[in-house]
Design a protein around this nucleic acid. Sequence first.
DNA 1: GCCCAGGGGGCTC
DNA 2: GAGCCCCATGGG
Length: 227
Amino acid sequence: MSDNTASALIPEVYTRLLAAYGPQHWWPGATNPFEVCVGAILTQSTAWTNVEKAIAQLKAAMVLSLEGIHQTPVEELAVLVHSSGYFNVKARKLKALAQHVYDNHGGDLAAMLVQPWEALRTELLSVYGIGKETADDIVLYAANAPSFVNDAYTQRIVNRLGITPAKDDYESHRAMFMGALPADVLCFNEYHALIVKLGKDVCKKTLPRCQECPLQAICITGNRGPT
DNA sequence: GCCCAGGGGGCTC
DNA sequence: GAGCCCCATGGG
């Protein structure tokens, strides 16, 4: 009988997904840490394909930089990020991040990212528009520090494994993963990316049968379908 | 045409 | 501090 505790299943999920999909090499499309920050904000509640269009618009308008965002009026930004949805809100969020870096780090994003990651995470959470998931995206994929990114897909998988923590919220799920894995940036990087890959597979129904899901063997719902 | 998805902010109680 | 609504849009 296999060990079905969180500390056994969480590494096993990683092994299975990595074997099935291979390394994902995230963050998608970003050529520098600022582009990770922009993508992390724009992808809130939004499919990545629409984020890509918005980033292309920002790039074409030559404003995909900290200075560019800082200097561009919020109304103009809203037009440029239109395709990512919630455009008025997201334009304000991009401006808030840029303003924060100018006010607290002299406009030097790298200077902000280089501090101990727990302090960086706390600082990010104080910025308008940056909640827990977005902060962890930025810590992991822009600052390359080992903060695990939890998300809706991850919580769903946890429920399927039958290891839902007593308090079913973001921090408890995240703490469970960080307790079950080594604090390794590459592992956390790939783990979240692989879960997103699986989640999209399931959502888009490119997994024809539950038996073909990489996690089928450890999924407590058996063969009832990979939803 | 309706409903759902889903981070984060903000309001209410 | 929990529960609700709002933000906009794409996809089923």
